[in-house]
Amino acid sequence: MGRYFGKKIIVYLITFIIAVTINFVIPRMMPGDPIQILLSRFSGMEGGREIIEKQLTLLFSLDDPLIVQYFKFWKSIFTGDFGISIMQFPTPVIDIIKKAIIYDLILLIPSIILSWIVGNKLGAFSGVNKKADNVLMPIFYFLSSSPYFWLAGVVAFFLGVKLGWFPISGAYSATMNPGFNLKFIFDYLKHWVLPFLSMFLVELGGWAIGMRNMIIYERSSNYSKYMEALGASDKCIRRYGFRNGVLPQVTGLALRLAGIIGGAITVETVFNYPGLGRVMLNAVFNQDYFLLQGIFLAIVTMTLVANFVVDIIYMFIDPRVRLSFSGEV
């Protein structure tokens, strides 16, 4: 087991180093001179030029040789100092990220987990019921074939515009002040429904297809046939099949949760929702390199940590993984 984890940790470390290096290299490979762009943007602002110049020496330390710059970049990562955003001057990058991440989590965690549960149930059902299969499968295929933002548009058009049930823009009404009171929470939930629903629907299809195929595969395996020959009830066989079939789905869920940050970027664009994906896109178009670097790093770190947690969880839910790594099988 130690060897297994050792290997995993090495992969994750290498990945992290590569990701940070990409992050370091990209602004330096940029066509044009990003510094002049930044300076010209701030030359009109009182004291702006000095602050930006200080920023640049801190983050790029351009007078130093490249290798020294590289190590200084690493140092700034470990001190959590990603610099100051240019777009929303002078908010520190880390504050912008913290604020936006909350919207991502409240929107994505429920939609991913609920679609996983419902998708697995429906998939398992259509795996054993031929009639249901013929109706449900085309729907699932269609759902998982649709681009997120297209389905978001369809949902917004029918439920938001035609029926007018839910607002289709923003995370809360413009007249509202964010705060912890009933009126705001209600308003927030109303804005939350449509983005949630569109994420839920697209994800649903993929989970259901995966589960259905697994169930069919398990049903035709030898142990199922053996149990059938022994006269076990259909329900009992199905239960065993489900337990086996759900394992790859757990991996899928974990990987999906790992990529959660910024995972709804196109849906957020359609609904004008202030999550991290939107912030990242704005940073790209406004050439806010500090913010972009910070977000990319946050996403990579989240992904790595989540993947690692998954590896640990998987050992507990699948006895075979546990046994094979302790050398008992």
Binding site: A19, I26, G262, L304
Partner: peptide
């Protein structure tokens, strides 16, 4: 390594 690096973020960058 390629699996872990977030696709869309990398593509956007």
């Amino acid at each position: 390594i390629f699996v872990v690096i977030p696709q869309l973020a990398l593509l956007i960058v």
